[in-house]
Amino acid sequence: MSEGTHVDDDFSDHYDDSLGAARRAEVEAHLASCARCRAEYDRFREAVAQVGLLGRAAAPRGFDHRVADAIRTRSAGRFFGRRAFGDRVPFELLAALGLAALVAIYVLMTW
């Protein structure tokens, strides 16, 4: 490959390492010999790397609750309703209290 045949069209695939082996070898050989393409590819790689460094912006705190509130409001309370005992009724606790009450009543009646 001559220095006149620049490889700008392959920059993205080369960066993603998605060129075939033969083409990759050609591009790498060209980059080694062509100062213009090497400089351009260095700028290309730096720009794309900077985007990657942005990282993922996290959703604001409480976002999930605000989504649930929106669904509850728009469904007129059919979904995501507020519950007196939190997310679920504490059946185990209610059963234990009921049993204790029955035992207490039985003891009082037989005493």
């Binding site: 960066y15 290309f44 720009a47 794309v48």
Partner: peptide, 17 residues
């Protein structure tokens, strides 16, 4: 599309790098 986008980004950021 990605190739063109990255080239455009290179040009926009290039002047600051």
């Amino acid at each position: 599309r990605l190739h063109r986008a990255r080239l455009a980004l290179k040009e926009k950021l290039g002047k600051h790098m």
